[in-house]
Simulated scan of single mutants.
Amino acid sequence: MNKRMKSAEYLSNFESMFKCPICNSSMKVFELKSLICLNNHTFDFTKQGYINLTTHMVKTKYSKDLFEARRKLIVEDSFFKPLSAAIAEMINKHATKKEALSLIDMGCGEGSHLSNISDIIRSEYNKITTGVGIDLSKEGILVAAKNYTNKIWAVADLANTPFQDKQFDIILNILSPSNYEEFNRLLKADGLVVKVVPQSGYLKELRAVIFGKPEKQSYSNVDTVERFNENFQLVDSSRLCYTVTLDNPSIQTLVQMTPLSWSSTAGQVTSFLKADSAEITVDLELLIGKK
């Protein structure tokens, strides 16, 4: 079996969670090639093993190189390792009674967060996990499907997700925009939303290089947190702050992976890119909410 067929076979175990993004009818896997709805709207599996469930072409600014860089930073440099561990621990703490968990990462990028968190929940907390990752960027989903098997990877619109109501125990939303209406629709009655937002010290060393004005170098996410609290009952939160030492190749990778550098000129980051090593701050807030 090739990768396309293996992915289709794996997804066929969970086809009941899907609904057609065009007409909302239920869907079935057909001949290990396509996902087809009752009204014959057809979405084909790609040779890389993901499925595109958008209804029109979407171009994003995120490139394949950016996602490859992000994956290198997460997997090889363990940049977000403490974050994955903290999220898995919080999920286990608040979902102790469940032996099996369905997780969806909304805005999953290249899939490493979902893969790492699922692995920790499975290996350290002995829970069965079903992982679904969606993103509007085809480039991100392509990198995810290439590297992580036994997950469902789909290009999909976060405002019109191709899933039936109340399908997921856990919604992950890591450094990514939210659509709370969809989160509420997709979440099971006793489910949890895990949102990660950057805090004032996040990548402050890179900000200092890119932004000359001090007010641009630090920022607040008070509005984001308030909006989360308006939509969900906050059951837990924690601030996670640590530093990572990066060597020169990893500094290059960091600059390549973050949209922060889009607003910089080549001259601004040249000296930063030449450094032999750098201490980089990761400063994040984890919010856990329920309906």
Rank of each mutant, 00 (worst) to 15 (best):
F232K: 04
R239P: 01
A278T: 03
S238T: 10
T243V: 13
L254T: 11
V194H: 03
K213E: 15
M257L: 04
A208W: 02
T265F: 07
L254S: 10
V197Y: 08
E226I: 05
R239M: 10
T265C: 09
L254M: 13
S200M: 13
V209W: 02
V197G: 09
D236T: 03
S237V: 07
L273A: 06
S218H: 11
F272N: 11
S250H: 08
Y202C: 09
Q233K: 14
L192S: 07
T224Y: 04
E205W: 01
D276E: 15
I251P: 01
S277W: 10
P214D: 11
F228W: 02
P259W: 02
E230R: 15
S263E: 15
N231V: 09
A278W: 00
D276P: 15
T224F: 05
F272G: 10
N221I: 12
V269Q: 06
S220K: 07
S264F: 10
I210V: 11
D247G: 09
F272T: 13
W262A: 03
V197E: 13
V209Q: 06
V193Q: 04
L192W: 04
R239H: 14
L234G: 04
Q268F: 01
F232G: 02
A275H: 09
T224A: 13
R239Y: 10
L203G: 06
K216S: 14
S250Q: 10
Q233W: 04
N248W: 13
Y242D: 00
G267K: 06
T243C: 12
G212C: 05
N221M: 14
V194P: 03
